[in-house]
Computed example of a mutant assay.
Amino acid sequence: MGAVNKDHWYFMVLLILPIVKVRAQQKEPAVTLALEEGMELSCVCPWEGRLSMVSWTKGTDRDPIAVFHPDFGMSLSHQYRERVEFLRRSELDGTIALRNVTHQDIGVYHCTVHAFPQGPWSSSLQVEDLDEPPAEDEDDEVLGLEYPSPEPIDTSLDLQAQLNENLTVSCTGLPNVTVYQVIMEKRAVGRPWHIIAVCKILDGGLLTEDYSDRGSISCAHTLDISLHLVDVQPQDSGFYRCTFHTDTGTHNTTMTLSVSEPGGISLSMYMFYIYCGAGAAGLLLIIAVIIAVVRHRNRNKRIEYRVKKLYPAHRQRSKEAQAYEEVPSVRQPAVCAGAQVSYL
């Protein structure tokens, strides 16, 4: 019976954590920490009293991470099992250590210590990758802010795929440079960028962090990164960006993926058909004009030929009249009295 009550208590605590509200006057300002292996998230209540419970949540949605109770012990969310440890250096110490950290651990953490008799006390911590600050729109996503859509994105490659087919989205490192880390991100229409994979060299070895909900990630030792999609779906469409961190700086490669129905026409194919249709229409127009001109000239020749054939006498008389007009005039004889003819 006790085990049932204990499990029930864990379940109820995880349900009410996202809606727990802490008094504003007892809330400490946020502290920024660097993302690193084994990092400690400090949560030490400055009061005196007896500990009732410690709870950790993350993000604006207050997703539960861990709960500690002096009597019932510790309960962890699934993605934090074997990764979180309560240090418990003092009675009202809720500090935890986080192992096997990834870029998914970047964000805002909230700690609440319930102490008797004064009540709850809370603090917040911001975990960031200080070696490479997160992009601006990633910060906006963490804070839950919404901003107008940015300017149109310039893409270096347009990918086309049909529904339910397989596709690989690949990014190749730059030649003649040393790549230390590559981050692949995706952005759907109307959504901010989010990380789907990270490949980096750590202690001479290759570390791959796969956060993709669709497909699988593969990394080469040259830090070439690929996303393998099986049975492509409409939600796979959007922008994909690879950011290479090298000894010469940061370099980006951006691609766009369009998914069309089988047998359907994608936007690029549609525009291709439009251009081909316009070119064909222009060519047909030129041919039609040439044919009209040739027919008109042939018609005039036929008319002239018929005139020559049907009215040859008229044409002959016309020529004789023309020749007569061109002959010089002849002196006419003068008739005198006595019927003698004399020429003047």
Rank of each mutant, 00 (worst) to 15 (best):
T172S: 15
T172W: 12
G173Q: 13
G173I: 12
G173M: 13
L174G: 14
V177A: 08
V177P: 00
V177Q: 10
T178A: 07
V179N: 14
Y180A: 07
E185F: 11
K186A: 08
K186T: 11
K186F: 13
R187I: 02
V189C: 07
G190I: 12
G190Q: 10
R191G: 05
H194S: 15
H194V: 06
I195G: 03
I196A: 10
A197M: 05
V198I: 13
V198K: 07
C199S: 11
C199I: 02
K200P: 01
I201N: 15
L202T: 13
G205E: 10
L207K: 13
L207F: 11
T208P: 05
E209M: 08
E209N: 05
D210R: 05
Y211R: 08
S212N: 09
D213F: 06
D213V: 02
D213N: 02
R214E: 11
G215W: 06
I217S: 02
C219R: 01
C219G: 08
A220Y: 02
A220S: 13
H221N: 08
H221V: 02
H221R: 06
T222E: 15
I225E: 01
S226D: 05
L227M: 06
L229I: 06
V230L: 06
Q233P: 00
P234F: 01
Q235K: 09
S237A: 14
G238R: 01
F239M: 01
Y240H: 09
H245Q: 09
T246N: 02
T248M: 06
G249A: 03
G249L: 04
T250A: 08
T250S: 08
H251E: 03
N252F: 03
N252D: 08
T254L: 11
L257E: 02
L257M: 05
S258V: 03
S260I: 08
S260C: 12
E261V: 11
P262K: 03
P262Y: 00
G263I: 04
G263E: 05
G264L: 12
I265R: 12
I265C: 05
I265T: 14
L267G: 08
L267K: 11
L267H: 11
L267D: 13
S268V: 14
M269F: 12
Y270F: 15
Y270S: 15
